[in-house]
Design a binder for these strands. Structure first.
Length: 425
RNA sequence: GGAGAGGUGGCUGAGUGGUUGAAAGCGGCUCCCUGCUAAGGAGUUACAGGAGGCAACUCUUGUCGAGGGUUCGAAUCCCUCCCUCUCCGCCA
């Protein structure tokens, strides 16, 4: 959420920021509304102050022995009633106005940080670094072809059970998924992350707090009967872990790692990535999440990104780091690095992690602060996938594929998986 | 699903109409004392909005789960909703 005071005092700065994202917005009328609201608040509180004095006066006189029906007290009560009427009118006006303002600003995304590369779409994204050596020389199969041969993924049965865009894993496939989750959690917790297993069903306030609602309702599965939603990413419950809290300053940064299943409706992606593990309604993910103070959020972003990268390195999967340009940023982010893993089968880099600094955007929506001396400040929040499990499995299948149809398991994963390769069982 | 109890500051917990934004305890912070440690003493310790000094402050409004109502005045009375807990039933 954008800062009301900044909207009032420096709307052009925000207009410029939104414009960089490709949003042309004229904030003059919003600014006027905010000022009007401030005005109403002031008038109202002056009246209330007057009313409070009258209330005290009545109490004083009664304690001094005046009768409740004495002339003086009846006079004061009358006066109090008049004030009450005026206050009620102002309050009503105030409420409509502040509702209007809030509904507008909840729809505005975060503004990009100063150094964010400017551009309209992903063509303006910036290559930051590369790691490993992408295999390009041979004729590689795609991961779903490999998986089919090994009989570790069954899509048709998934349709029977649920519908399209679901996967059912068998044998070594199911085992590999489990191994990857444990492997990633172990690496991150060994670095000081606190492991969390959050609920998969989450409430509306949580989704508003992290920025998924009100704008992206159509992307999230809903249990309308209970007014709960299926979590689209652990980022949501992790943000709400500290919603409406003041975190002690000396416990920052708070670093969490959570495994969670993720559910997405994938509305509007019909026909894209229909095969395999790349785009499913349900997938597993290990998510990293930091609460930190504003001073340290830039360096924290480097660190959380490096922590996500360390998994790819440990699995010997070639990847590159891309900084998203202003037009490609997600709703809550002010700066994002995508980690893209190399998939030799499709001869392309594919997003496997997104690492974002949301600065105080989510913290303001969720009211998460820290106290430094007498000052209470919003914290900064950062998140990074570390990593998406299904896509990691796809990458392992494609990068580890052998000519005989077997798949080599990365060495670091062997203790978790228990075998050195995938082969027909 | 049936019956009951309750939601108060970082926490425990008092408070049923009038200087109660809220006792007390714990915790936190500051200072003092002590040769380290432990113990002790004094003080301090909610959040949000607004106005003014535009800095360390002062004034003001709101906030005791949320919303509405009664009243000159509500944490305290009434209504609605949400949530938590206990017992019984059912069930991993």
């Amino acid at each position: 959420m954008l800062d009301l005071r900044q909207l009032r005092e420096n709307p052009t700065l925000i207009e410029e920021g939104l414009l960089k994202r490709g949003l042309k917005v004229d904030l003059t009328s919003l600014k006027k509304d905010i000022e009007k609201l401030r005005n109403l608040e002031q008038q109202r509180s002056e009246l209330q102050s007057e009313g409070n004095l009258i209330g005290k006066e009545v109490g004083q006189q009664i304690r001094n022995g005046s009768k409740p029906n004495s002339k003086e007290i009846l006079f004061l009560r009358n006066k109090g009633n008049e004030i009450k009427k005026k206050v009620a009118l102002l309050e009503e006006e105030e409420k409509t106005l502040s509702k209007k303002i809030k509904s507008i600003i909840l729809h505005y995304p975060n503004i990009p940080y100063k150094g964010c590369p400017e551009g309209k779409d992903d063509s303006a994204n910036k290559l930051i670094r590369k790691w490993g050596h992408p295999k390009k020389d041979e004729n590689y199969k795609e991961h779903w072809q490999i998986a089919e041969k090994l009989k570790i993924i069954d899509t048709e049965r998934s349709v029977r059970i649920a519908k399209s865009r679901f996967a059912t894993l068998f044998n070594q496939g199911a085992r590999l998924e489990r191994a990857l989750i444990n492997f990633m959690l172990d690496i991150h917790t060994s670095k000081g992350y606190i492991e969390v297993l959050p609920p998969a069903l989450i409430n509306t306030a949580s989704l508003k707090g992290s920025g998924q609602l009100p704008k992206f309702e159509e992307e999230i599965f809903r249990c309308s009967e209970d007014n709960l939603w299926l979590t689209p990413t652990a980022e949501v419950p992790l943000t709400s872990l500290h919603r409406d809290e003041i975190i002690p300053f000396n416990s920052l940064p708070l670093k969490y790692v959570a495994y969670s299943p993720c559910f997405r409706r994938e509305a509007g992606s019909y026909g894209r990535d229909t095969k395999g593990l790349i785009r499913l309604h349900q997938f597993n993910k290990v998510e990293l999440y930091w609460f930190t103070n504003a001073d340290r959020s830039k360096e924290s972003h480097q660190q959380i990104t490096a922590d996500a990268e360390s998994i790819l390195q440990a699995l010997e999967l070639p990847y590159r780091v891309i900084e998203l340009c202003t037009g490609d940023l997600g709703f809550s982010a002010s700066c994002t690095y995508d980690l893209e893993v190399w998939l030799p089968g499709s001869n392309a880099f594919r997003e496997i992690s997104s690492s974002s600094n949301c600065d105080d955007f989510q913290a303001r929506r969720s009211s998460i602060r820290t106290k430094q001396g007498k000052q209470t400040n919003l914290v900064h929040t950062l998140n990074a996938s570390g990593l998406a499990i299904g896509r990691t499995m796809a990458a392992i299948l494609e990068n580890g594929q052998q000519k005989n149809g077997h798949v080599k398991i990365p060495e670091a994963l062997v203790p978790y998986f228990g075998e050195k390769e995938l082969k027909p069982q």
